[in-house]
Nucleic acid binder design. Sequence first.
DNA 1: TGCGTAAGCGGAACACTGTTCCGTATAGTC
DNA 2: GACTATACGGAACAGTGTTCCGCTTACGCA
Lengths: 197, 197
Amino acid sequence: MPTTESAAVDACPDKRVRADAQRSMDALLTAAAEVFASSGVDAPVREITAKAGVGTGTLYRHYPLRSDLVAAVFRHELDACADAAPVLAEQYEPMEALSRWLERLQGFFATKRGLSAALHSGDSAYEHLPDYFRSRFVPALGSLLDAAAAAGEIRADVDPQELLNAVAQLSMGGPIAGEGYATRMVQLLLNGLRYSD
Amino acid sequence: MPTTESAAVDACPDKRVRADAQRSMDALLTAAAEVFASSGVDAPVREITAKAGVGTGTLYRHYPLRSDLVAAVFRHELDACADAAPVLAEQYEPMEALSRWLERLQGFFATKRGLSAALHSGDSAYEHLPDYFRSRFVPALGSLLDAAAAAGEIRADVDPQELLNAVAQLSMGGPIAGEGYATRMVQLLLNGLRYSD
DNA sequence: TGCGTAAGCGGAACACTGTTCCGTATAGTC
DNA sequence: GACTATACGGAACAGTGTTCCGCTTACGCA
């Protein structure tokens, strides 16, 4: 999960973390979740540290890269989204499961201000974030795509990584994106998977 | 074209511009084109002004918003892309013309580092840029879509603005975007337009 | 319980970047 | 050549990411 030696309590439960450090990390996570929701994942560090009541040095100590903080804040929700794939696969026909999961995925990105843009920014502060998302979402999407292809409902030649990237991008909205834009575009991609010459 | 009272020589030929001012603007356009190509449209102003041999105040005087500079640098190429639509419409069947133009559009964005991201950034420095692009590309795309729909080759219910936005976003590439990613995704959108239940 | 020391702290300092503004320079007209 | 409007450059300023060092806190051990 975290790709740097930080937030050690989560990555290595055997490692001792002092009580004050744990308090700082908890405060930062709470504050960051609020600030991300209101100002986006690229909000200034001072906004987060002020809300958390800790110093900026403390933030960097526990979360050396912004992607470490972003990953920590969204981890549970991301896991829940990825884990929804097999559940949907059991409840619905392959095509329906795929469609519903993509809708879930799109909703995940849509409610995280600036997350999709951050993933595509190439900014070194988000260096490890794409890998993190890919590691959880690509297997989920891959299995749904395989099932739908095996059922003869879609073509079998789309790369799950590419489709994931496309959904993330379309979820950014945009200067003209009205209500339902991303949903319509993702649906169009799905229809493209169904189309055969 | 320019949405602010700058680069007056182009917007209002009657207005006198001093020779030194014209030299400054020319130098800035030349430098910006180079810097945008190597560092992207969000390169620091100091990089552009240093290359142009002018002061930063001079850059803001002639191009108050970054979007003014971006629009000026890419104007000819953007016009040429938009003007290619009717030409392709004459030479090819509607579906083929649409496909080729989207490929042309995608290539336009792909060769402009950071342009697509800038369009979607919401940054006030790029405030007028989306409108500029929309004003030239939406009519072009709209007529191609109409022709293909009239020929019964695609559904008639896609909004050209939305499709334009989607192509721009997919042209951003991304952390996993390999060779031809954007082309494949745009093709998938096109296939989606052809698909009917 | 007290001591020693490692872990952790906060925020000033620093570098980078966007933007403004003012004293000086240049261009154009008469 | 003189006058004046236009244009100049870059220092100053504010915002932001990041580092680092003197000080503080927590924990383990005797």
